[in-house]
């Protein structure tokens, strides 16, 4: 994260050195873009705070003790709906693993968690348009399902 500030500072200094007006224009451009999308991000924050409230219990309850196929499907669904920072999601996945939950279920959950973003829809739609957002997320869900099956095969948890 500090790196981001260092990069910004270096770029601004270099930019300022070459062209003062362009630098000011750049800062204004960034500021305007940020102000335009800010309400979208704020809405997102409200939605995430609500979703996180019940997702941890849901995960432990529904991914913890079920058969592997049902668990994987639940993993795909829960991972798509919720959103968590990595420092909560991975320790949680570690706990599930230590309780004997299969890699396949965990893979379903962690890949959709990252790739499929239902809660980020309001922001993604602003930048990508509704159609591209929906198509991209469906493609990501399919990829997540393929990864899930591959994990099951690789760890020898399912045999076809």
């Amino acid at each position: 994260m500090e790196a981001l500030y260092v990069i910004m500072a270096i770029l601004l200094i270099v930019s300022f050195f070459f062209d003062r007006d362009k630098t000011i224009k750049s800062i204004n451009r960034g500021k305007n873009k940020f102000m335009k999308i800010l309400p979208g991000y704020l809405k997102l924050l409200v939605i995430i705070s609500l979703v996180l409230l019940f997702s941890e219990d849901l995960i432990v309850e529904y991914l913890g003790n079920q058969n592997i196929i049902l668990g994987s499907i639940m993993g795909l669904i829960i991972g798509s709906i919720t959103m968590m920072p990595g420092f909560i999601a991975y320790p949680l996945a570690g706990v599930l693993l230590s309780r004997g939950v299969s890699f396949m279920v965990i893979a379903a959950f962690v890949t959709t968690l990252k790739m499929v973003g239902i809660v980020t829809y309001p922001v993604e739609k602003e930048y990508m348009g509704a159609r591209a957002t929906i198509y991209r997320n469906i493609a990501s869900l399919i990829i997540a399902a393929i990864i899930t099956i591959s994990m099951g095969l690789f760890y020898g948890e399912v045999l076809f």
Binding site: M1, L4, Y5, I7, M8, L11, L12, S15, K22, T23, K25, S26, I27, N28, R29, G30, K31, K33, F34, Y41, L44, L45, V46, I48, S49, L52, L53, P85, I88
Partner: peptide, 26 residues
């Protein structure tokens, strides 16, 4: 829960958008 994400956004988004602004102009 709110703070977990809000903190990241407050720290990351402003410099990120400045860099995007520089990118678009330069």
């Amino acid at each position: 829960n709110f703070w977990i994400f809000a903190r990241d956004m407050i720290l990351i988004l402003p410099p990120a958008f400045i860099i995007i602004g520089l990118f678009e102009i330069w």
